[in-house]
């Protein structure tokens, strides 16, 4: 769905590169991008979405070169990005208007946009707050609202930047269900995330970014088995994986259930 070749980017002309020589292909496997703060994860997804322009290299989405598009608006129907900070995303006066904004903007009819919006708001359990001002929601609700706003646009690619921040177990469960529902519709779900337990339980593929480069890429289980490389990227395997490893388990364990079966 996405092909990235030899991608480089720096924020200042001639400045230190934030990303250098990135080559990646994305299929429909749900994918987590992990790595330290400052590794270039958010910059990378902004480039995918066309919010930033690469210094070098190409990004092809559905065989269309993102560079050839003059504005991010032209990509908006294909790729949706949920921002890390909901306050950067929210600007309408009611919850319903907020979620309808994206669909209307990509030329969905009003009736369909409203139906899409309400359906997405049901998924995040905010459909009883349609007339509320989004700024009166709690941080965890705002995060869910932003996810709904992008889900309602029904794009083929959905990127979630730190979706689990401020969520309790119920909130995480809702996000888990949304990701599953999107996977069932054959969409590419990508996330930038520091919550490794959530990665282990929900994402098929994991890519480790370090200092603007891809350090490791593969099935999540394989990635979390590479202790030394993870250490180099200053990333930790999930707690349960670490416990199993300390106890001398041969296989890489990703969930509590797997651990108990092995015992």
């Amino acid at each position: 769905m996405i092909k990235v070749s030899n991608l480089s980017f720096s924020y200042k002309k001639g400045g230190a590169p934030v990303l250098a020589g990135i080559n990646l292909e994305f299929d429909q496997r749900s994918t987590a991008i992990i790595g330290q703060n400052g590794a270039g994860k958010t910059t990378f997804v902004k480039l995918l979405k066309g919010l930033l322009k690469p210094d070098n290299g190409d990004i092809l989405i559905h065989n269309v070169n993102v560079k050839m598009k003059t504005t991010a608006a032209e990509m908006a129907g294909t790729i949706g990005l949920v921002f890390q900070n909901p306050n950067d995303q929210i600007f309408k006066r009611t919850v319903l208007e907020e979620v309808m904004f994206g669909p209307l903007n990509i030329n969905m009819g009003k009736i369909i946009a409203e139906r899409q919006a309400i359906q997405a708001l049901k998924m995040v359990e905010l459909d009883d707050k349609l007339e509320m001002n989004p700024h009166d929601l709690s941080l965890s609700e705002k995060k869910l609202l932003c996810i709904a706003s992008v889900v309602a646009m029904d794009t083929d690619i959905i990127i979630l930047d730190e979706p689990t921040i401020a969520q309790d177990i119920h909130g995480k469960e809702k996000i888990r269900e949304i990701i599953q529902a999107l996977k069932d519709k054959h969409k590419l779900v990508m996330t930038i995330i520091h919550d490794m337990d959530f990665v282990a339980e929900n994402f098929e593929r994991t890519i480790v970014f370090n200092e603007g480069k891809v350090l490791l890429d593969g099935d999540t289980r394989y990635v979390f088995s590479q202790k030394d490389i993870l250490r180099e990227a200053k990333v930790e395997a999930p707690g349960i994986t670490q416990l199993a490893e300390k106890l001398g388990f041969k296989q890489t364990i990703l969930t509590v259930e797997e651990f108990i079966q092995m015992k």
Partner: peptide
């Protein structure tokens, strides 16, 4: 609505408590 640390959950599932206490371990 709270999930105990993963270390506690796994020890609870296996029924392994801390020595001489009625509690499960909470750290790695």
């Amino acid at each position: 609505g709270v999930l105990a640390p993963v270390y506690t959950r796994v020890c609870r599932a296996l029924g392994v408590k801390k020595d001489g206490s009625d509690c499960y371990p909470v750290t790695l």
